[in-house]
Simulated scan of single mutants.
Amino acid sequence: MRVRRLTTAIASVPLGLALGLGTAVVMPQEAQAAANAPCAKTAKACLDLSSNQAWLMSNGTVTYGPVPVTHGKPGWETPPGTFKVTRKYRHYQSKQFDAPMPYSVFFNGGIAFHQGSLREKSHGCVHLAKSAAAKFFATLKVGDQVQVVT
């Protein structure tokens, strides 16, 4: 398991090294990859369409994630680009698709991060598990930058 290997690796580092006292700490490659997101430092949320992952960020540092996502199906693709959060609704109901969209954070017209199926692709929105959707909703503010990369 990824967490167990990382915990074991960190536990085996001498305390002075783990605290970074004069010597750099080298993390396992998996932990380094998880700590990086493929978006600009200005992004508060990062979505990588090719890896089906999203992150929350602050000044270029990952604060949450990566988390798994699903996004737009053929004909309803989630477009890449840089956007701003425009509105948020804790309990949103899509009129177009007659579907609940809990924890909606809209960032590109009708496209939003929200709680949804991680097995089925969407009509352009970004589906997150309930806990991740709640975290994105609680963290992102209107005006925050969202970057979507391929």
Rank of each mutant, 00 (worst) to 15 (best):
G72W: 02
T61K: 15
V69S: 00
K130A: 14
K95E: 15
C125E: 11
K88Q: 13
H91V: 12
P102W: 09
H123W: 06
P79V: 12
C125G: 10
T86Q: 13
G60A: 06
K95P: 12
S122H: 04
R87E: 15
F97L: 14
V105E: 11
V67W: 01
Y64C: 01
H123A: 05
S94C: 05
V126K: 01
V126R: 01
N59R: 13
L128P: 05
F107R: 02
M101N: 06
A99C: 07
D98P: 03
A132T: 09
H91K: 09
P74H: 08
G65R: 03
P100V: 05
A99T: 12
G60W: 04
M101H: 02
G110E: 13
H123D: 08
V85S: 11
T70P: 05
P100E: 07
V67N: 00
N108Y: 11
E120I: 12
Y92W: 15
K84H: 15
G60T: 07
K95Y: 13
P80D: 04
F113Q: 05
K84V: 10
Y89G: 04
T61M: 13
Q115G: 06
H91A: 11
S131C: 01
T63G: 01
T70V: 06
A133V: 02
F97Y: 15
H127Y: 12
G75I: 12
R87V: 12
G75Y: 12
P80W: 11
M101Q: 07
L128Y: 02
E77P: 00
V69P: 06
S94D: 11
G116T: 00
S104Q: 08
T78M: 03
G110V: 11
K130V: 08
L118I: 03
E120H: 14
L118K: 00
T78R: 01
F106C: 10
I111F: 04
M101T: 03
G60I: 08
P66S: 00
T82Q: 13
G110M: 08
A132D: 15
A129Y: 02
P100A: 10
K121D: 14
P102E: 06
S104K: 01
Q93C: 07
F83H: 08
Q96C: 00
K73S: 12
Y92I: 02
P68V: 03
P100Q: 07
G65P: 09
T61E: 14
Y89W: 12
H114Q: 07
T86C: 10
N59L: 12
C125L: 10
H71M: 07
E120R: 15
T86K: 09
V105H: 05
V105W: 05
F106S: 09
T70H: 03
G65Y: 04
T61I: 12
R90E: 14
C125M: 09
Y89A: 14
A133E: 02
H71T: 14
V67R: 00
R119V: 09
T86P: 11
I111C: 01
G109R: 07
E120W: 13
S131N: 15
F106V: 08
Q96M: 13
G65V: 05
S117D: 07
S94M: 03
F113E: 10
P79A: 06
F97S: 13
A129S: 15
V62C: 09
Y89K: 10
S104F: 03
Y64G: 01
H91C: 00
K73G: 12
G65K: 02
W76K: 13
K88F: 07
P100S: 11
V85R: 04
T78C: 03
L128I: 02
T82K: 14
F97H: 15
